[in-house]
């Protein structure tokens, strides 16, 4: 999948966890808020589709859905075929679109699959696989100063639900 892979950067990858999924009522999308596992108090936000966002939210809740969601189906393929989702890496950002790579391991062979971060993370959470971002993408992330805006949005959402 990546024949001309450049040499690994000397800077290590940054591990992330999904902090929460926030509804953006203006655009019918979801905002994925990711935090660093090393405790650095800065966030990384990715806008994802409503369906993908809900799938990630369900994985966080570990609530069992009556029927498998699309990402549950991919996990199920892995379980049947003995393919392990080893890790996912957010590798690039171009014009505000993030790119991710899913690393699959099968009988000692690693293969990579190109994915949107929403699918990569939806699968990683279900397979307990770590989520990473390259230091370069971390530096170029959007939402560096959006924490205040996000808090306001969440307060508004709570208010809207009470009505």
């Amino acid at each position: 999948m990546m024949p001309d892979e450049t040499p690994q950067p000397t800077e290590p990858l940054i591990e992330l966890t999904v902090n929460r999924v926030v509804e953006d009522p203006n655009t019918d999308t979801r905002i994925l808020v990711l935090s660093r596992t090393d405790g650095t108090p800065e966030h990384f936000m990715i806008w994802v589709g409503a369906a993908e966002g809900e799938s990630i939210r369900r994985a966080l809740d570990t609530s069992v859905t009556p029927r498998p969601m699309s990402h549950d189906l991919v996990r199920s393929f892995g379980e049947h075929l003995g393919v392990i989702t080893e890790r996912v890496v957010i590798t690039d950002v171009k014009s505000s679109t993030y790119f991710a790579t899913v690393y699959l391991e099968n009988k000692g062979v690693t293969r990579t699959v190109d994915a949107r971060p929403s699918d990569a993370i939806g699968l990683a959470l279900r397979c307990h696989a770590p989520i990473y971002v390259t230091p370069d993408v971390w530096k170029r992330r959007t939402g560096q100063n959006l924490d205040a805006w996000l808090n306001k949005l969440e307060t508004k959402n709570i208010g809207a639900q009470e009505v």
Partner: peptide
């Protein structure tokens, strides 16, 4: 899901893989 089926019916190649394109790529990879 409807939107994903519609893209496949009309043979539209989206700029980024949709969930089912990813699913197919996952199976292709192994």
């Amino acid at each position: 899901e409807a939107s994903s089926i519609s893209l496949a019916l009309e043979s539209v190649d989206p700029p980024r893989p949709m969930t089912h394109d990813f699913m197919k790529a996952y199976l292709d990879a192994v």
